[in-house]
Write a protein that binds this DNA or RNA. Structure first.
Lengths: 135, 135
DNA sequence: ATTTATACTTACCCAAAAGAGAGTATGAAG
DNA sequence: CTTCATACTCTCTTTTGGGTAAGTATAAAT
C-alpha cells in the first residue's frame, strides 16, 4: 500500500462528520489501552478463560485492574461474562463477535510491533546518542 | 479471516521468546495511546505539519501533551522534527517510514472504530438497561 | 470446627499523568 | 517602544491510574 492510497483509504470512509469523529475518538481512547489489547489477544488465543487463568496469562496485572478492565470490556460488548452458580465461584469470559472484530483490527498492530520493536529500540539509541553530543 | 486463521496468524509469528514478548508489550504500551494514534493519523493525512497546525487539528490536546507526545514519537523514530532557525520559530513534523508503517497498522483499528462505534454505544445501552433491571 | 478455593469488592494510599497558565526568546512590523 | 507571532518550557495543582491488603460468600474437604 502506498502513502497515497493509505491517505485515501482513511479519507474515503465518509464525509467525516465531526460528531462521528468525536465518537470514534472516544472509542479509540477507550480501546487503545495496554491491558485491553493484551486481554483481547489472550482471549483470541484461548477462546474461553476463567478469571484466574486470565490473571496468570496477563503478566503483571493486578486483580483490581483485571476486574476493572474486564467490566469495561463487557460493558462495551467485547466479552461475555458467564457466571456459574457454584462454590467456589466460576466465571468464564469469551470474546463476542464485536470483540473478535476488534481483535482482528489489533492484529495488524501486534504484527507491526513484533516486526519493528527492534527498530524502535534503535531509534531510541540514536536519539540518545544525538542528544548526548549536541543537546 | 476465520477465528482459526487469526489465532494461527498470531501464533505463527515465532516461538514467542518471553524476552521478545516483553519488548513487544512495551512498544504496544507506548504506542497504544490516544494522542499518539491521533497525531499519526493527522500526519498521515497532512504529510507535514507545524506545531500550531497539529495543535489545531488535534482537538482537546494541551500544548504540554502535544510537545510531550511529539518528543516521544521523535525518540521512538516515528516522526522527524525539523527546526528552521527563524523568528518566530518554525518547526515541522513529518512521519518517518517507521511511523508510516505504524500508521498502516493503526489503519485497521480506525476503520474498525468507524464501522463499529455504534455497536459499542448499543452494547453500553444494553448493559446499562440490564443492570438497571437485575443489578 | 477449620481450612481451602474462587472471584470478586471495598477502602486506603501513593505516584504518575495531565491540565492551566505564566514566562521566554527574538526579530519584524507598526 | 510596543506588539505580535511561534514553539516551546516551567511551575503549580488537580485528576487519574493503579497497587496492596483486607473482607465476603459458601460448599466441600479434612
Amino acid at each position: 500500500m502506498t502513502d497515497r492510497s493509505l491517505r485515501q483509504e482513511l479519507q474515503d470512509t465518509g464525509p467525516t462528520d465531526p460528531a462521528v469523529d468525536r465518537l470514534v475518538e472516544e472509542v479509540i481512547g477507550r480501546v487503545a489501552d495496554k491491558w485491553t489489547m493484551l486481554l483481547i489477544e489472550i482471549l483470541t488465543e484461548r477462546e474461553c478463560c476463567r478469571f484466574g487463568e486470565l490473571s496468570r496469562a496477563c503478566t503483571g496485572i493486578s486483580q483490581k485492574m483485571l476486574t476493572q478492565t474486564l467490566r469495561a470490556m463487557e460493558r462495551d460488548g467485547f466479552v461475555t461474562r458467564t457466571v456459574y452458580p457454584v462454590v467456589p465461584p466460576k466465571v468464564e469470559y469469551r470474546l463476542t463477535d464485536l470483540g473478535l472484530g476488534l481483535s482482528k483490527a489489533f492484529c495488524g498492530v501486534w504484527l507491526w510491533a513484533e516486526a519493528n520493536f527492534d527498530k524502535v529500540e534503535c531509534a531510541r539509541r540514536d536519539y540518545a546518542a544525538r542528544n548526548a553530543d549536541e543537546g
